[in-house]
Design a protein around this nucleic acid. Sequence first.
DNA 1: GCCAGTTCGTAAATCGTTTTACCACGAACA
DNA 2: TGTTCGTGGTAAAACGATTTACGAACTGGC
Lengths: 346, 346
Amino acid sequence: MGRKRRGPPASRSSPTIRDVARRAGVSPGTVSNVLIGVRGVRADSRLSVMKAAEALGYKSNHMASSLRRGHTRTIGVVVPDLSNEFFSGLVTHWEAQAANAGYEILVVSSGDNPDIESRRIQALIARRVDGLLIAAARDDFGTAPGLPVSLPPAVLVDRASGHKRFDTVSSDNVAAGYEGTSHLIKLGHRDIACLTSADSHVHLRDRVQGYRMALKENGLSGRERLVIGGRSVDACRIVIEQQFRQAARPTAIFATTFFSTLGAIKAIHELNIALPQDISLVAFEHSEWMTVFQPYLTSVAQRRDELAANSWSVLMDRIASPHATFRRLKIPITLSIRESARPVSD
Amino acid sequence: MGRKRRGPPASRSSPTIRDVARRAGVSPGTVSNVLIGVRGVRADSRLSVMKAAEALGYKSNHMASSLRRGHTRTIGVVVPDLSNEFFSGLVTHWEAQAANAGYEILVVSSGDNPDIESRRIQALIARRVDGLLIAAARDDFGTAPGLPVSLPPAVLVDRASGHKRFDTVSSDNVAAGYEGTSHLIKLGHRDIACLTSADSHVHLRDRVQGYRMALKENGLSGRERLVIGGRSVDACRIVIEQQFRQAARPTAIFATTFFSTLGAIKAIHELNIALPQDISLVAFEHSEWMTVFQPYLTSVAQRRDELAANSWSVLMDRIASPHATFRRLKIPITLSIRESARPVSD
DNA sequence: GCCAGTTCGTAAATCGTTTTACCACGAACA
DNA sequence: TGTTCGTGGTAAAACGATTTACGAACTGGC
């Protein structure tokens, strides 16, 4: 092989700015000025550079340019689980935002495990992402060891709302709990089971708090029926089935997570009670399959598009001014009244 | 500002290998040898380098290292739509593979639009991804203008199976069509509508071909009822409703896509016919909500995990040996017999 | 015709890492 | 003692783009 250059094996590597410069009969600096244009270039040299770049199929090497410019135009996205529709929805929106703004996103999953999360974030830092969009595994994100003291600009999304050391953008989960419950109360229900997956995260506790607020406001505090299922559909199903083995059965269920929604439906089927004739249900989240499910589920849903759009712009602001005070955005939720919650039958 | 260095504003930038070298009293080359160890280093200098790196919280700059080494350890992932559960499933698996192998993935969406797809791929090329995993918008991927002549190593997944110029990994869609249909025939059905979204892609045409094969093998070719819906749930619903306005109604529906599955269910509801008593349905894909849907749907499902694992390793092989002959993998599908397809009632 | 000001091109420095080329120092051996 | 190795360290040259510093050529005003 008659290679003349040193360094790593180049095996027909792509043309460099130097190749373009040579072909256009100018210097690399001029080529750079034509292509990203911080300085004027005479029309004729501009033209010959354009032609040369075109002919060679020149694509600027992003590594080199990042190295020199000190930013990568890459955003790291950290989610617990990409196969969860809520998160894949967020990522879809973020990707669109990124494409628009000339960014790319590096996506990693934490499996909701703080150790894995730290490791994956470390990898993103080594890649010098310009910013981080994080749906954190724990509310105390960043306080545990394992993460370096200084992180790139980051915003916490969905989880860990109100964190002291980061911008946060999340749904108004208290309102979610309040509105879902109030809707059932307005329909005359007084025995409302509130089904949730865990009490380990603020976003879940907030929904329960909203439930309690609605109860209290209507003098129903004594009737609280909080049911903590677990993170799987069947765990939720089982605890709901237990509720129905008690003497005083609830007349309505408010599911505060997507999994518990599925668990509630499954339990209702197993118990052979009629939805919505004998039991009302307010579901959490909306999903395409619900349009073919009978009855069409009344639900409280998060606004993924607004969550994504707002967190993106908060992150951009944070990158632009790293020392601004932290922001805490709460995005309203949507209550969609459909068919699964009905006036209580007496 | 008493900055001494030129170049981009450094604003408390992270420590470099030179900082570590200075602190450890060795040269940068030695630090590099300690950290990635291609050459021996005496025990005492090794130790002091480790300590210095630890103390400074040194993280190697991936941009610089990529630039010098000539690879990025980054894989570009191109999918039509990340909020489609099938693709987000694939991406989830790929991300896990990547994390395992010390790679990261750069995810982009094409919206199934070839122009957007080209642009997004261009961006990935500028970032010098080491490889590409592509669920292409069109079967003739890469022949249309807009894409450079030389792409990085790429494998085509799910779509464009059997492409001449790329490795391909996809489900055995002919078998999918064949097995779904055969199952219904075995149950005694003779009027089976095959519902699909379009005939624009091989993977869809293959499923229909499997349907035809099964029909033919059972002397039912004359009874073919191919129904092409469209890419939305309601488009599929409408065409199925039309089928049922005809004198000779089908006794079974084989849905060959996820959307057409939803469309078929919706139509069945609207028409007020009982599933599975009056109509049998074989669905496509499996999804968590199906576990709470009644009747539990009999379905043909793709094996996302195998699709992802195989495409990943084919890509790794391709990167390792760029000139090997192309491979065409077909992954078997899974027929799950559940409750929505029943023996034909006479 | 001369001087100041503008425009535009180039050479060289720089980003932070890896890797090559070379050198110094011992140890082993004749 | 003189010659080879082997080991481990350093300086410097890459990687490919951006940007600064400088200088040549041109413009315009007097």
